[in-house]
Nucleic acid binder design. Structure first.
Lengths: 97, 97
DNA sequence: ATAACACTTGGTTATATTGCCAAATAACGA
DNA sequence: TCGTTATTTGGCAATATAACCAAGTGTTAT
């Protein structure tokens, strides 16, 4: 396999990897209709601030979300709108227990 | 968070997790227009037979692929057709290096 | 039967991921 | 300025993942 093809597969799989954790998937769904600051995720999830921040940075790294700082807060919103369709599409999918 | 909601997110994230490895993504793309037996993936990837088999079983568990045995070979094909659109959709996606 | 082939499964080791805590940074208010 | 709040970063321990090898299963060919 060529190096460029390997790189393409690594990049694409990184996006799926970002979505492969229940918490991050929940975050993405939360961001579908509104932006949220980190503290809102912390409050709703009961996870540590650092944990939430790291999850969001993984989503940000692959451009699924984008952020901006306003005052003391950092607000996150969905950047990759196509994620909405993808999640919808996969909701049909069966899983073996 | 309710248990049923937790389960839903775990199931959905399992699908993304299955797609989150370059080798498995490559396999899925290979299966878009044709079925393939395990040995074809082994030959093309230079990975161990057991490694290839395990990757395929992860894809099978979440119903992305299905298989059937004919003679000595096990043939895999794409079960979740919507994966094609998903991969197309994400090809547009940027990644930070 | 038994040998060969095409897998799958179990075991082990190396590496990656996830969670928390503690410390660093940055903005705001007193 | 100093303290408080909001967030990020670094470090560590527990767990999960991925690779290989070896052994097991099932089918075909001799």
């Amino acid at each position: 396999m060529k190096a460029i093809e390997k790189r393409r597969l690594e990049n694409l799989s990184a996006i799926f990897k970002a979505l492969s954790h229940p918490t991050r998937l929940w975050m993405v769904e939360e961001l579908i209709d509104t932006e949220r600051c980190v503290c809102e995720f912390v409050e709703a999830s009961h996870l540590d601030f650092s944990t939430v921040s790291k999850h969001l940075s993984i989503l940000k790294q692959v451009h699924i979300v984008e952020d901006d700082k306003r005052g003391k807060n950092v607000y996150y919103r969905l950047e990759a709108q196509c994620i909405i369709h993808i999640i919808d599409c996969l909701k049909e999918q069966r899983i073996n227990q």
